[in-house]
Write a protein that binds this DNA or RNA. Structure first.
Lengths: 110, 110
DNA sequence: TTCAGTGCAAACCGTTTGCACTGGG
DNA sequence: CCCAGTGCAAACGGTTTGCACTGAA
């Protein structure tokens, strides 16, 4: 819950094991799924593996095409977008805005 | 290329076979991948399966949580968002905005 | 005694790939 | 004759699940 780096299920599993936590990968997946169902973590469906975020207040992300890290963006959430879509006849639950490109570190590298 | 319904690779494969096209699923995947690399189709990385869109001009999508259909949205693309993120030090390739909820048909049903 | 939670391994599913083949140039 | 494109089946990687077990209530 303290992590701000949007780990995948496997990354979470490995870091728990490194800490001496005796947990199986299946339990990590099951726990993440129930936490997501309870709304206590957010799931970011990214390729190749989903990433998890304990910050459930809506916010936007940057996904680096090179290192595959995910960054939280300091860009205000825009609820008015949902209203625009509702006006078209849809019932909007939420929206996801993901920017794809190179993060500052990878940008320098290339 | 004529389709506006964002089929998955498998949906595409099945409809081609129904038309009498003798093609394998592997070839569908390989063709979609090279078309995507050439920029002739766009890939929408959605769960559980990627969807493909011959419309490559940037635009936004609605993903129905109930019937899983994907709709093109008549909402103007906002390139200025990329500039906001570039100002934070990122190099933005593109961004994806997907609304999740119930489409007009499923909204009535429930 | 019960049963929610767990570990393990197998299954699952979308996708990719190795390999042999083939047919057009 | 060559090789880009194909079919087939196996492999792959992320995720889920069946089943037996366990330990707290």
């Amino acid at each position: 819950m303290g992590r701000r780096d949007h780990p995948t299920a496997e990354e979470l599993y490995l870091s728990l094991r490194e800490k001496g936590e005796e947990i199986s990968l299946a339990t990590v997946y099951r726990s993440l799924r129930s936490l997501a169902e309870e709304g206590r973590v957010a799931t970011l469906p990214l390729s190749p593996a989903d990433r998890f975020d304990p910050e459930t207040h809506p916010h936007y992300h940057f996904h680096c095409l090179h290192c595959h890290r995910v960054f939280d963006l300091d860009l205000p959430y825009k609820p008015e977008l949902d209203q625009t879509i509702e006006a078209l006849g849809f019932s909007v639950h939420h929206h996801t805005l993901v920017f794809h490109g190179l993060c500052p570190a990878c940008k320098k590298e290339v």
